Measured scan of single mutants.
Amino acid sequence: EETYEVDGEEQLKKVEKMLRDRNLDVEVEIHNGKFVIRAK
């Protein structure tokens, strides 16, 4: 499992696309105004 923490939606979209391109399962949560992306 990998976890990424990003600020802002633009970064979120980039990271999310990169992970989905690797066929990973992606979950996004918001913690303290930051996006936390978990990939399995």
Results as ranks from 00 to 15, higher is better:
F35N: 01
L24V: 06
R20H: 10
K13F: 09
V26L: 11
Q11F: 07
N32F: 06
D21F: 04
I30P: 04
I37C: 03
Q11Y: 07
I37E: 03
A39S: 06
A39M: 07
E2L: 13
Y4A: 03
T3Y: 14
R38L: 04
E29P: 00
D21E: 12
E16Q: 12
M18H: 06
L19E: 03
V28I: 13
G33F: 00
M18A: 11
R22H: 09
A39L: 10
F35H: 03
M18S: 06
L12V: 06
E5A: 06
G8F: 10
H31M: 12
V26R: 00
T3M: 14
G33Y: 02
R20P: 03
Q11K: 07
K17I: 08
K34I: 10
K34E: 01
E29A: 10
L12S: 06
L19V: 02
R20V: 05
T3V: 15
D7T: 12
R38I: 10
R22E: 05
D25W: 15
Y4W: 14
D7H: 11
K14D: 09
K34S: 05
G33P: 02
K13M: 09
V28R: 00
D25H: 14
E16S: 11
K17Q: 13
L19F: 12
E10F: 05
E2M: 13
A39R: 02
D25E: 14
N23W: 11
D25Y: 13
L19Y: 06
L12F: 09
G8T: 15
I30A: 07
E10T: 07
E9T: 09
R22S: 07
L12I: 04
K17H: 05
V6H: 02
L24S: 01
V6F: 07
I37P: 01
G8A: 06
N23Y: 10
K34G: 06
V15Q: 01
K17Y: 02
G33S: 01
D25G: 08
D21R: 04
E9H: 10
V26W: 15
I37V: 12
N23S: 08
H31W: 10
R20T: 08
E27S: 14
L12C: 15
A39P: 05
G33T: 02
R20K: 12
G8H: 08
K34N: 03
K17R: 08
V15E: 02
I30G: 05
G33I: 00
M18T: 06
